[in-house]
Design a protein around this nucleic acid. Structure first.
Lengths: 224, 224
DNA sequence: AAAAGTCGGTTGTATTTACAACGGAAAAGA
DNA sequence: TCTTTTCCGTTGTAAATACAACCGACTTTT
């Protein structure tokens, strides 16, 4: 367990907490460890999760298999990332997805009840942990909401307008750079790359925007 | 402030807590109240939220206006619902959407720092509140993830397969009823109703499933 | 410097979807 | 019972998208 403390120090959950404090918290929080071989199931759909989980080593894949056997990859979990927190509530139903080790992996299990219950005398860093937990979930939430806003747009053009508007707001300028290349952008918006490229050029030809590589500039719409 | 205690009692956040305790907690949590007239902005995009908000009276609309002025309704907030929690983290950016009062409304503001900081001696129900907060966000998170899983499917058929599979898993049976009518289902999946209806019938004709009104039955795929 | 690989724009076609409109069945209301 | 409304399946057409393939510019590798 101690060998993972340096990894924990670099996670969002334990950021800014010293190694000795982490060691005492691990104790206080009833943490346990489990190892998984490559391709082994960490959780299967239908199971229940009652812990907060943290990936200490390896890489995990979250995948969904529908009733007819079609598989789709939903997410990838990398070292230091927390997961399962959304299912830790007592009334959350069974897991709808599978979690599989993409490489040999190590998962830390934390008792969510212990984290949320307060032990002010024993752990001075407990409050900090609770806040970090809250902020981490909040951030996930914001990203989900933003992406959902994009995905509910039906056409490629609407998705682009929405995404570019969001970026302009975030960077507080009608001129901004994005971190995606075209393929990543298309994946993020769940559209075809060439169709997206096509649509971007159309919008440029219509005078709505301009771009060079990853730098975009939005123009006021020209009313006729 | 006291007049809202009976409303608070019925919210998820304060469920199971007595009126006297709620009164003392309101004090301890630095709660404040603000009234909004119909059509008034509660928050505008670009502003920062640093509180946890709870709608005590009225109804709110969350809407998005893109750079070119196109408006879309993202969500509706009803009495007793919490909102803004995802933006309460210190490093969360500016709000990307507008929040507008659809009717004359009353909003309660809670200091998120006070909620997450521990005062075990003063408020015995504090732990309960922290847990309720966590579970509420978790639930939102689960719903967002599920919906995002649906929305990332590209075709109407894929969305239907995904949605129906999820329902079968949730209800733990290949035969189940759904609460949506066709129009609501189409709205939920962000597809055209008639196109969806069409696709459902095709799938039925192909022997993948059967349905009568809101009762669906999924069949094993027939391999040719 | 040549070769290989990456990235982004373009094009054509087959497929899929949106949209509008219609009609029948069932439910709700008078 | 008759009328009105709602719900849902169907159809045809126009529009949008996916997909595959190609090309040129640029980068990286050897």
């Amino acid at each position: 367990m101690k060998k993972y403390i340096s990894t924990l120090k670099r996670t969002k959950l334990f950021a800014g907490i010293g190694e000795e404090e982490i060691a005492s918290m691990l104790n206080c929080l009833n943490a346990s460890v489990k190892n998984y071989s490559k391709k082994e199931y960490v959780f299967r759909q239908g199971e229940y999760i009652r812990d907060l989980l943290l990936l200490a080593e390896g890489r995990l894949i979250i995948q969904k298999v529908d009733y007819w056997g079609n598989l789709s990859i939903l997410n990838e979990i990398c070292i230091g990332e927390m997961f399962g927190e959304a299912y830790a509530a007592p009334d959350s139903g069974a897991l709808l997805n599978d979690v599989i080790a993409a490489e040999d992996s190590t998962v830390l299990f934390f008792d969510i009840e212990k984290i949320l219950s307060l032990c002010p005398s024993a752990c001075p860093y407990h409050t900090r942990l609770v806040k970090a937990l809250f902020y981490t979930i909040s951030e996930k939430n914001r990203k989900l909401v933003q992406k959902l806003g994009l995905m509910s747009q039906r056409t490629t053009r609407e998705k682009l307008l929405s995404y570019l508007s969001d970026e302009a707001k975030k960077q507080n300028s009608s001129s901004f750079t994005i971190s995606f290349n075209r393929q990543q952008m298309a994946d993020f918006l769940s559209v075809d790359r060439s169709a997206m490229s096509n649509e971007l050029c159309k919008m440029r030809d219509e005078g709505m925007l301009d771009f060079h590589k990853n730098k975009f500039t939005l123009f006021e719409e020209q009313k006729i």
